[in-house]
Computed example of a mutant assay.
Amino acid sequence: MTYLVITVFAQEHQTLTYYQNDSIQLEMDLFLPETSNISKHPLVLFVHGGGFSGGNRTGGQSYCRYLAQHGYAAATISYTLYMRGKNFSCGGVTSEKVKAMQYAANDLWSATAYLIDHADQLAIDTKKIFVTGSSAGAETVLHAQYWNRSVMGWSGDPLPKGFKYKGLISGAGAIMDLNMIQKDNLIPMMLFHGSNDRTVPYGTAAHHYCPTDATGWLMFFGSHSIYEHINSLGATSQLYTYCGGGHELSAELFKRDFDLSLDFLNQVLSNQKSQKHIIIKTDKPNTGAATLCD
């Protein structure tokens, strides 16, 4: 059962309940442009980080507010924190880690479906829906786009047949299998990641660099591996590498330099294609990808 608006905060944003059952209520904060010369707005959904055990949607409010000021509907969502009280590192259980991502992806699909259902009321263009996220949120948006929804959805595919997101922005994210990304489901992507990230690998490695005998061992393909793969498929891709940076930069472009996201979104809507790798030096020595930082 779902509900529409439950709270309005000073007309700045609306808090909406997009999913509710006997045990959980999931909400989003939706920011809408105050004035516009178009009848329907492109939409950006933001998914916060926190290892699927913490964090909250308020961390995406400044980002969503900025996008709304530039003509986008933007929502930061809450989702099921399945790993709360559990181990999401090497001492965890691999199947539980996968299930945490599955819960989050299903919640993102539900939030998307809710906004599609209310698109006329909220003036949303359902053909221009982007997903963005940092860390666990980035893993959520990557799998939400590239998993088979009919297989990984709890109740089948909740979205319209043939639905694809318009584009994706991932901060320090990774995907379990590059083979999920194919030409027929590929969308424009902007990625950013620290080259020394020891939590979510920048290239290809185990999550947290766990040893192979760890109960929580899980292979991850990080931003650089994804970037090389989508380049080989000829799609629009942008990678910002923070040389020497670690996982502390997973939300960097969602906290500041909002214009980089806005430029990417506008380019996608204008059908501008690009493949670029921007290298950003940090004050930390690089040990993870030296040849990329020269």
Rank of each mutant, 00 (worst) to 15 (best):
L186E: 08
V5P: 06
Q25S: 15
T112D: 07
R198P: 02
F264K: 00
Y165F: 15
A113I: 03
F254D: 02
L32E: 08
V93F: 10
E228Y: 00
E12R: 14
C90E: 06
T76K: 00
G71R: 06
S237I: 05
T212D: 13
K97H: 07
L4G: 14
A111P: 07
I279L: 10
V93M: 07
Q25H: 07
T212Y: 07
W147V: 02
A100K: 01
E27P: 01
G49Y: 08
H143L: 13
Y66M: 09
I24H: 13
M219E: 11
A105E: 08
N271D: 14
T7G: 09
G54D: 07
I77Y: 01
A138Y: 01
T94M: 10
Q275Y: 06
I116Y: 12
S170I: 02
L122I: 05
A68K: 00
M180K: 13
T80F: 05
Q11E: 15
S225Q: 10
A123K: 02
G91M: 09
A104D: 00
D259C: 06
S261I: 04
H208E: 08
M1G: 14
H48I: 11
A68T: 01
A111L: 08
V151L: 12
E252Y: 14
Y209L: 07
G246F: 04
Y63F: 15
L186I: 13
D157L: 06
Q61I: 04
L233A: 10
